[in-house]
């Protein structure tokens, strides 16, 4: 481990673990924003010296969306639904962190068995990408508030983005921007959906929504 890409990967792991252990929704949004912004710098680092102008543009767009627009949308929703913290998650915070660590070790093992088409810029990228996807998934299944689940979705997307950076030599900018636009629309729609759930039921606890039909 010797370059900036490694440091970004470690930072990613730490933000994931922090997300698993934090109960305040505002802090969660801030952590996801930070994670997205740092991830935006990844293509600049992993391209290895030669940086073209469209990479700068792309980086700026990713940092802008993930670091500023998404958090702004989510914080606006948070203000409307008046939920401050995750009250009783299905899996407690201490247990979540411990499980997260175990999953990270598992991901390290998994990626050591995985043949890759080319040498990634950092040996940590593949395990960390797996771990980020896993922790996003974990957030979605273990938390009750709809907002935390949206954050889990964003974290999963971050993981897939990281994986893409490891595997693909150079992604077409058009495809990347298309994905970003999709995510943007998803967050936008989910924000509106959350607002409606809140207006209808006075809370955004998704575990109670399963009883709608009875």
């Amino acid at each position: 481990m010797n370059n900036i890409a490694d440091t970004i990967m470690i930072f990613l792991v730490l933000t994931n673990l922090a997300l698993l252990g934090v109960s305040r929704l505002g802090t969660c949004i801030r952590i996801v924003a930070l994670q997205g912004a740092v991830l935006g710098l990844l293509p600049l680092v992993s391209s290895g010296g030669h940086v073209e102008w469209h990479l700068y543009f792309f980086s700026a767009v990713v940092v802008g969306f993930k670091g500023m627009v998404f958090p702004w949308l989510l914080r606006r929703t948070l203000k409307e639904v008046k939920a401050q913290r995750e009250i009783e998650p299905f899996i407690g915070y201490g247990t979540s962190i411990a499980l997260g660590t175990a999953v990270f070790v598992l991901c390290m093992w998994l990626s050591s068995r995985l043949p890759l088409p080319k040498e990634p810029p950092s040996m940590l990228i593949v395990p960390v990408a797996f771990f980020t996807i896993m922790s996003g998934l974990f957030l979605i299944i273990s938390r009750k508030k709809a907002l935390t689940q949206v954050l889990g979705y964003l974290v999963m997307e971050n993981g897939i983005y990281t994986f893409g950076a490891a595997i693909v030599e150079r992604q077409p900018v058009l495809v990347e921007l298309g994905i970003l636009l999709d995510v943007f629309v998803a967050v936008f729609v989910m924000g509106i959906a959350m607002f409606h759930i809140h207006r209808e039921f006075d809370h955004i606890d998704t575990d109670q929504l399963s009883r709608l039909r009875t």
Partner: peptide, 21 residues
């Protein structure tokens, strides 16, 4: 406090995983 201490353990485990690679 236990959450903080579990966090410290996690940091150590991460460091171990990094060095053991």
């Amino acid at each position: 406090v236990p959450a903080l201490l579990i966090g410290a353990t996690t940091l150590s485990v991460l460091a171990l995983v990094l060095t053991a690679r």
